[in-house]
Design a protein around this nucleic acid. Structure first.
Lengths: 225, 225, 225, 225
DNA sequence: TATGAATGAGTCTTCATTCAT
DNA sequence: CATGAATGAAGACTCATTCAT
């Protein structure tokens, strides 16, 4: 997997004095500037048409220097969208990995508010990146991110159901894999729509809350609790 | 606007005899073969990465000859997806252009069945093209088709309301442009989902019917009739 | 395997008139000019340092056009040295493939003269190409031609001995594979030396004759006939 | 000429205390480590394709630091093969520079044994470097080492004959420069073959002895002593 | 019409070397 | 001495489009 963290390869032990600190800041600065410009270019032209030359030119560095920070164009793209892919993966694990069935009981008003706010701020704070990831990745190795992700998700959620069936044999898990899959897909299509269109904060929050209520209720109904 | 009809630039005067007729058939055949192959390539690789050379090779003609039928790659793309862009535009005009308010009263069982069937066969018969238009157009001048289309639609529908308000001053048209817009968007997102996922005929028809019912009811409610 | 013949893909049926003939001549001309210049550049700079740009410039054509004649740099190199690799492979088959043991009895004066002349004119007429193949191929897929060739030759000659042992059980074939191998190697090292240094015609012919006599005598001695 | 000795640019004045001594040892260590790694890389990839970055990485130092020890890639290459170029040049001088005609009389059994052993251990102990020098130097300024060397040798040996003719007017020196040249060439081609192929110790020694006998006898015959 | 050679700017990527720190 | 970021030219190869035939 590509390695995108700022401060890559930085040995903390080495930061002993002002000189190293300054250098580190400068280097990180360049790396961030590259990512910023790349984000802009990818957004504007898509992965394929965005050119390393142009990115370098806009950052005001030599072309080759980009390759001191990223192995290739594809890794640069990965790093640009890393923030959102990271969160998406964490969300997947958090909501279905760590928690047991009880997550479905938590649909008290307050709890839904929290989840809704979380999702809202994720979408609102990452519109650009989500747009890039969903619609400008053609040609990169992330061009099938949605598909891959939903497939993975299906597997994880399926495993989660099997695990919970062991602990609560009374629940019903007799539904098709496709049902699980279609729900992951819906989640994404919701994301996509919310990303693509400029919906106001209130409306977006309302949509998200309704979605959460719907999903929780739906699943509780299905498993029979 | 690009000109995509088969027989483009055909001089009718030339069809004087059997020989010319035969040639014409052959020519049309070539044009269609180009479009067929191009569709396949665009679907497979997307607009940018599909190459004119490869298309020509697969059609078994010279590269240059493609340019006797299409001005450039972009026009070829237009022609490939023309069937669906055509229908989409017709649908827009038909449902909101020609008809008056009475269209909303037509929600009898039979009528809904017709619309539903129509939409179903449109989607089912054009999955490949819709996929290309929605997801493989990056780099072409149609890369923002959805956005452009929904914007146009919003304008047309808005005008339609104004027009009907004149004739039926009793109706309420006091709602935001965004409401109109979001409905066009929904239409598209429905299309997208139905295109992307292999939903069976029955399920798809059901979804479509529900959608039609919902839309008709919703609008009647809103305008207060 | 790369395809290097001039007139590649030419359908003889197509040559019906002056026009096609002329075109064919022009195309072949370009292909030959590319090969000529490439030969010069490879000889001068070796495979790696010879650049497609420079070759194109010297031929007075665009870079991309070279790729209408050759898939890539490596194929161009293959085509440049094709004349000698072809002959080397034919020589291998001719001397050990088709013929039986009797080839060793043919060492009459006249016969040796023929072989000697043949080899001499091969070396003399292909010094440049042999030099390129032996000393300038680094980086190309032919960089180990000598090794590969001698290995293949060892196998073929070994099989040749086994075959002849069946027909003439009285001959001795009880010698190591390495003996066979080292003889192929010697043949090459002779070639190399004759290629590298400007030896006069008479001297070269003498060396070659002595080599042939020596080889024939040596092998007859070894197999005991 | 490049300067390859370890401790290049070392200021002896600086070695004043234990600390400097230790540092010096470390520095020499680095220089040798660079050379070791470079040898490996040159052997593996040849001069052109071996990259300074990779070498530095394998030595575990910064790229720039290599340039504290060697002016450039070419000098590094020189230093890598220095051991063998040194010996080759010494051999040339020793056998034909310092000694007079009497060297040819020394072909007693014991003496030949010594020369043979010397040459054997030279080849056997420097196979890797000789391989690099002969077959991996393309692109470096040593790419024509063999040619240059044999040309130089020809001149020196020619001078040696003239010198000896003065002292021993009775000897015959009436032979072409090419004869001298071809003998140096032979020496090299012998080296090459012995380097390239894994010949066992006994066989190699035998070949070398035969070569020495042959050369000594041959030259004595030619000059008529 | 039909061909496909020709163009030439464009792509990403590599690399020896320098230089501020 | 040591670092490694920075440079910028160079590498092979691609591709939409044109044009002479």
């Amino acid at each position: 997997m590509y390695y995108c963290n700022i401060n890559k390869r930085r040995s903390l032990l080495k930061i002993q004095n002002w000189k190293n600190d300054l250098m580190q800041i400068l280097k990180d600065d360049i790396k961030e500037r590259i990512i910023d410009v790349a984000r802009k270019q990818f957004k504007q032209k898509g992965f394929i048409k965005a050119s390393m030359r142009d990115i370098a030119k806009e950052v005001n560095i030599g072309v080759g220097n980009i390759y001191n920070y990223f192995h290739n164009k594809d890794e640069l793209f990965h790093c640009v969208v890393k923030p959102v892919t990271n969160i998406l993966e964490k969300m997947l694990l958090k909501h279905h990995g760590e928690n047991g069935l009880e997550v479905l009981y938590k649909n008290k008003e307050e709890n839904i508010q929290n989840m809704s706010n979380e999702l809202f701020s994720f979408i609102n704070g990452n519109k650009e990146l989500l747009d890039i990831l969903f619609f400008k990745a053609q040609g990169s190795s992330l061009e099938n991110f949605s598909e891959t992700f939903t497939d993975q998700a299906t597997l994880i959620i399926k495993a989660w159901f099997i695990e919970n069936k062991k602990r609560h044999p009374e629940i019903n898990t007799n539904f098709s894999d496709f049902l699980i899959h279609i729900h992951t897909v819906w989640q994404f299509s919701l994301l996509r729509e919310l990303v693509m269109h400029d919906i106001g904060e209130e409306e977006m929050k309302k949509v998200i809350q309704e979605y959460i209520v719907f999903e929780t209720k739906g699943w509780k109904e299905l498993i029979g609790i």
